[in-house]
Nucleic acid binder design. Structure first.
Length: 191
DNA sequence: AGGTCATCTCACC
DNA sequence: GGTGAGATGACCT
């Protein structure tokens, strides 16, 4: 499995992307997008998971991934674009089936996938849509989202209007601040 | 079978 | 505004 990481200009975090590449089909399969506060921790994680950091070169694999990074930078700088649509055009697939194998988790992800930039929904709303009162279980599914930004789980907030969890954290931390920033980037200045 | 959760509601203060 | 108990259900071990 391969990986790249980068630091967007607008945010004081590092973003690691891990993926597989099928040379025959020329398709890049996104495995995980993960946020880090410190570069040292990114390196530790990459070594620990034995991810191969890809080098700067003009292979198809590298071109796709550099386009993806360009896209994410544009998105994070406030450009109005729909990540999930653009990604489809780049020969990129999302690897989700093993993370969300059950009908319950699947239906939640389908709903969250359809959220447009600037749109928000509550855990409660999702529960109503799928006919379940297991609001905490919905949170648990989103907690395991391997592809934040692309599966826009930051657009799911609490019914009370509070921000709700992000990256497994429910109390004040840089993770919540990141969720707020992402919503602010999408013009929700109230958070 | 029992514990863990990125929630909600309702009853208080 | 805030806190705490109870409901709630999927998903782990």
């Amino acid at each position: 499995m391969y990986a790249v990481y980068f630091k967007p200009k607008q945010l004081n975090i590092f973003i690691l992307i891990s993926f597989n590449y099928n040379t025959n089909k020329e398709i890049l399969k996104l495995k995980e997008i993960k946020f880090f506060k410190k570069e040292k921790v990114v390196i530790n994680y990459q070594e620990d998971k034995k991810l191969e950091l890809i080098q700067e070169q003009e292979t198809p694999k590298h071109i796709i991934i550099s386009n993806l990074i360009k896209l994410l930078n544009q998105y994070l700088s406030g450009k109005s674009l729909d990540l999930i649509e653009k990604i489809d055009e780049l020969n990129i697939e999302l690897d989700l089936n093993e993370k969300f194998p059950t009908p319950f988790s699947n239906s939640i992800i389908e709903i969250v996938k359809k959220l447009k930039r600037g749109e928000i929904i509550t855990y409660s709303d999702i529960g109503n849509k799928i006919g379940s009162k297991a609001y905490r279980a919905i949170g648990n599914v989103l907690r395991n989202n391997p592809l934040p930004l692309i599966i826009p789980c930051h657009r799911v907030i609490k019914k009370s209007g509070n921000i709700g969890g992000f990256m497994g954290k429910i109390d004040q931390g840089w993770q919540q601040n990141l969720k707020k920033k992402l919503l602010a980037i999408e013009r929700f200045k109230t958070f």
